[in-house]
Design a protein around this nucleic acid. Structure first.
Length: 432
RNA sequence: UCCGCGAUAGCUCAAUGGUAGAGCAUGCGGCUGUUAACCGCAGGGUUGUAGGUUCGAGUCCUACUCGCGGAGCCA
């Protein structure tokens, strides 16, 4: 394959004449000199076209280029502190690939509705490119983290016959002669089967919620990583969650500095994301909320505003554990010291980003689990295979789910989750 | 499902109930160092839809549609 050069490699090509391909990000002209800002997905480069230095054809071609036109440009690279990226090309040749039609996203401000309508083009903007690169690094960090610790990637089905937790509203579809099937809202139950086969596993894929959630913290389709570990209790689970978050944040800080700068992210709080994180029980969280003047009763679920109050108090991710069992899922193990409590943990991100992890130790006793399934009026026949995990060599085990977009959103300092995924799916939008 | 806000040029927004405007984008012209370049000219409108009040409605009223934000639910 012929070697291609990208803008992020220009430091190796100073003084050389090279050819780059890309799109016109912006253009400025001053009579006989034109400044073309080329973007190629790897960076931005100011290409200078002087009338005296190029043929009339090349000068005219530079004149014709409209925003987002694709072209190939040749010239000598020099260091130039005045230009974006610190390099500049003195153009000698230019080939138009396609002249773009009038580009909808102009270099001025746009409303969110317009930008979302043009998401396929909005992705080209500097800000969106930075976010997508951070997202990729987060995904990479997650995989590295689990792979290095001997976890096996375990892919659960997307189509499931039943509601996993029996609470959320799911997307239904017709499944041939078998009737209704649903898009998964969590791979966890299957992950448990994987943990009992492989020891430590993680699932990583899309999940779906048909809840009519209309907030900046919700998508109907989002990505979640869900580790599940045999012989892990709740404390082990929290240790792992803590290490994972620290690893992701510190990796992105170290390796996506440029992107965080583009997003104008204040990283002072991110730099403090180091173990140990505060661990408080639900009881302590209730006390804290009441001290802060929040009208809160024991047994209430901790809402979005309460999460912000709690995490704001510490300035670090906070682990809240041992919730009232009534407000948590059926599969969570009860606290042996207080059966009203579930051995659950939520990790709350700082700066108002809320719950990024929800996890628990799982109920490993067959009779207890059967009782819960009946209490929740869940269809027992669908859970037979899941109960088998308690019939054949049941062991204490734990796991958690971490929302990818919420994590990316927090690290990137985004206003809205919809910027953290290429094509967001929301209650009133499934296009483009 | 509930509560709040909004819809005017391709985009972002203005316009005491009295002739619908600006910036950007587009087109043409000018400028040899621009940084969301600048300067001049031009084209561009069924003011979300349907009713109502009024001499007169972008503006006031009613309904609807769509969108945004929040609650609940959760990652």
């Amino acid at each position: 394959m012929k070697q291609k050069i990208y803008i992020n490699e220009l430091a190796n090509h100073v003084g050389q004449e090279i050819t780059l391909k890309g799109w016109l990000y912006n253009k400025r002209a001053s009579g006989k000199v034109k400044f073309l800002i080329l973007r190629d997905g790897y960076g931005y480069l100011q290409c200078v076209v002087f009338k005296g230095n190029v043929s009339d054809e090349v000068f005219e071609a530079a004149d014709k280029l409209t925003q987002e036109s694709s072209f190939e440009v040749t010239g000598k690279i020099k260091e130039e502190p005045r230009a974006i990226g610190g390099f500049e090309m003195d153009v000698t040749d230019l080939q138009i690939i396609q002249i773009s039609q009038e580009y909808p996203i102009t270099p001025k401000e746009h409303g969110i509705e317009f930008l979302i309508d043009h998401r396929h083009l909005w992705l080209r903007s500097k800000r969106q490119v930075a976010i997508l690169k951070i997202r990729h690094r987060v995904v990479q960090a997650i995989r590295e983290f689990f792979d290095k610790r001997g976890f096996t990637l375990f892919d659960p089905p997307i189509i499931t016959p039943n509601a996993c937790e029996g609470t959320s509203t799911l997307f239904a579809l017709d499944y041939f002669d078998l009737g209704k099937a649903y898009l998964t809202q969590s791979g966890q139950l299957y992950g448990e089967a994987g943990a009992l086969a492989l020891g430590k596993i993680y699932t990583f894929g899309p999940t779906f919620r048909a809840e009519k959630s209309k907030t900046r913290r919700h998508l109907t389709e989002f990505w979640m990583v869900e580790p599940e570990m045999a012989f892990f209790d709740l404390d082990d689970d929290m240790d792992l969650a803590e290490e994972l978050i620290e690893y992701i944040v510190q990796t992105v800080l170290a390796e996506r500095k440029v992107e965080l700068e583009i997003l104008e992210r204040d990283t002072t709080l991110l730099e403090q994301v180091k173990r140990p994180f505060p661990r408080i029980s639900y009881d302590e969280a209730v006390k804290l909320l009441i001290e802060k003047g929040v009208d809160f009763k024991w047994g209430d679920d901790i809402g979005g505003a309460d999460e912000t109050t709690i995490s704001g108090h510490y300035g670090k991710p906070v682990m809240v554990h041992r919730y009232p069992a009534e407000i948590k899922a059926f599969y969570m193990k009860r606290d042996p010291n207080n059966p009203k409590l579930a051995l659950a943990v939520d990790v709350l991100a700082p700066e108002g980003y809320g719950e990024i992890i929800g996890g628990s130790q799982r109920e490993d006793d067959l009779d207890e689990l059967l009782k819960r399934i009946k209490e929740h009026n869940l269809p027992e026949e669908f859970f037979n295979w899941y109960l088998d995990l308690r019939r054949y060599g049941s062991v204490p085990h734990s796991g958690f789910g971490m929302g990818l977009e919420r994590t990316v959103s927090w690290i990137s300092g985004l206003e809205h989750l919809r910027e953290a995924i290429p094509f967001p799916r929301m209650i009133y939008r499934n296009t483009p």
